[in-house]
């Protein structure tokens, strides 16, 4: 059973890595989006492995169901040239700079993870939904209300931005 978990973790990690590389390296935006969706499914698998099925479900519902569709709309509505491809890179400077930018935090945080004092580990346990709801309305009440305000404001802002041209005329 223990080994099966390691195998599943390895498979999910492989899915996440493949999808992430597709998301940052593919020149076609649609393929990059497919890579992102692959990564989202891999992360959902990791949540399942950590006995958090509710979060895994929310990950698929919110990210795969809503966020990726919104990004697809962004690709479609910008009327990008066929296939929404980025221009090819003439000089590798940009990739080199990106590698440098990504490497520094990786090295620092990776070193901290390896050397830091880790709290005693407990085997993951599934949290019943009722307890999640109770936490949402007791310690997290303010955050819960604030996030609904933020979502409303973001939605209203998006609509206003979208209508901006028509108001200006």
């Amino acid at each position: 059973m223990e080994h099966l978990a390691y195998v599943a973790f390895g498979i999910y990690t492989l899915i996440i890595l493949t999808g992430g590389l597709m998301a940052v390296l593919c020149r076609s935006m649609v393929r990059a989006l497919v890579g992102l969706i692959l990564t989202l499914f891999g992360v959902a698998g990791c949540y399942l492995l950590m006995a958090a099925p509710f979060i895994a479900l929310m990950q698929i519902l919110i990210y795969v169901g809503a966020v990726s569709i919104l990004i697809l709309f962004a690709i479609m509505l910008t009327r990008a040239p066929a296939g929404a491809e980025e221009a090819p890179y003439i000089f590798p400077w940009r990739s080199l700079a990106a590698l440098a930018v990504a490497f520094l935090p990786l090295a620092v945080i990776g070193g901290m993870i390896r050397s830091g004092q880790v709290a005693p580990l407990v085997p993951p346990e599934e949290v019943p939904l009722a307890e999640l709801g109770q936490t949402l309305i007791e310690p997290y009440l303010l955050a819960f209300e604030l996030i609904s305000v933020i979502l409303t404001v973001a939605m209203a802002g998006a609509v206003i931005l979208g209508f901006e041209r028509r108001i200006g005329k």
């Binding site: 509710f54 919110i62 990210y63 919104l70 709309f73 709290a119 993951p124 109770q134 979502l151 802002g157």
Partner: peptide, 30 residues
Amino acid sequence: QLTPASAAMGQLATLFVMGLAAAEVALILA
């Protein structure tokens, strides 16, 4: 999930991150 910290609070914090991501994507789309 893996430390003695409250598992429910960790899961809900991630739910908030997802909500923020959804709001952010809607704005950036516009």
